Computed example of a mutant assay.
Amino acid sequence: MWQVLIVEDDPTTLAFFAEAVSRSDRLVLAAGVGTLAQAKTWLDDPSHKVDVLLTDLGLPDGSGLAGIRHAMARNPACEVLVISMFGDEENVLASIEAGALGYIHKDSTPDDIALTILEMKDGGSPISPMIARRVLAKYRGFREEPPAAAQPVPAAPGGRALSPREHEVLELIARGFSYADIARLKSVSVHTIKSHIKSLYGKLAVSSKSEAVYEATQMGLLRPPGRT
């Protein structure tokens, strides 16, 4: 059962998304709030558990991007979907850069909302081909820049250091890229990427993407969300 926090300032939209979450037997509505301040207060309570943050970006007291960074700093295993409108591609792209894995349109049906959340929890990244293309283009641009001086890769437990390629794959996993996306970015086969992931899972002593991101962040192998 995945715990879902919804942050949406419009009461009608909030009620609609809450009802959609409640319809699934694999999802639990943890809370629904209407402001950034309320979301931060809820997230700061150690008794609250959240697996999924479903957030609007245009909140009355600030940007939902701040809420995304706050949630992921408190719980790196939390996965984020943005509540979006058609034609909002620039904000969606900014939210993905902040750590969101995808978005749900405000005019989605209740069944589509629950399905999108569950697909994300099963390893998917619900973004349109257009948004995916823009994100991939940006990462290709980073890759094509002249390389900076080599930096040492931190070691995993027991001195088992991740290879540079494993560390690159780990960073892309943390950004929400699929195996196919990473393979395209690195110009290798999906089988090769799966081999890297299997190796880094073994070195981190984890068995899932969310565990890998959490453990790597705790060990200093990944920068905490929102920090440069």
Rank of each mutant, 00 (worst) to 15 (best):
I117E: 10
L170G: 06
D10W: 13
L170K: 05
R165F: 00
R165H: 02
D112F: 09
A180H: 11
T217S: 13
E90K: 14
L136G: 05
P225I: 02
E211G: 04
G62F: 02
I83F: 04
L81W: 01
K209A: 14
G123H: 12
R134F: 07
H70V: 01
Y179M: 08
D25T: 14
H191F: 03
G64R: 07
G87D: 07
I113S: 06
A174C: 08
A161Q: 13
V213N: 07
I83K: 04
L29M: 12
S95F: 05
Y179F: 13
D111I: 12
A114G: 09
V50R: 05
A174S: 14
P147D: 12
S199G: 03
H167P: 04
D122C: 08
L222H: 07
L54R: 13
P110C: 10
I173C: 10
H48D: 00
P129L: 09
V92D: 02
A18G: 15
M130K: 12
S24W: 03
G102T: 01
L101C: 06
T192Q: 11
R143W: 02
E119S: 14
G67F: 11
R74Q: 10
L222Q: 10
V52W: 00
V28P: 00
M219N: 03
G158S: 06
S128K: 10
L185K: 12
I68K: 09
S24V: 01
E89Y: 12
E8A: 10
A216E: 06
L5E: 06
A77W: 10
D9C: 02
M120I: 01
S163R: 10
E215W: 11
Q3W: 08
I113R: 09
I83M: 14
D9A: 01
A132Y: 00
D9E: 06
I113K: 08
G32C: 02
L115H: 15
M120W: 05
Q218K: 13
Y201H: 14
A100E: 04
D56P: 03
L101H: 12
A150S: 07
W42Y: 13
A183W: 04
D61Y: 06
I127L: 13
S187K: 15
K209G: 05
L14C: 13
L14T: 08
H191T: 11
V169M: 08
E215L: 11
T12M: 14
L57D: 03
A180I: 02
A161R: 13
P224D: 13
S195P: 00
K194D: 14
V92N: 04
F86G: 01
P225D: 04
L162P: 08
K203G: 03
H191V: 12
D61E: 11
L170V: 06
L27S: 09
E144K: 11
D45L: 04
R26D: 08
Y103D: 09
V21C: 08
P157T: 00
N75C: 05
P154D: 10
D10H: 15
A71Q: 13
I113P: 07
L204N: 09
L65E: 10
V169S: 06
S84D: 03
M130V: 14
G226W: 08
T41E: 15
I6E: 09
Y139A: 07
V21M: 09
D111K: 15
D10N: 15
S47W: 01
L172W: 10
E144Q: 14
T13D: 13
I96F: 05
R74Y: 04
M219P: 00
A205P: 01
T12R: 14
S84H: 05
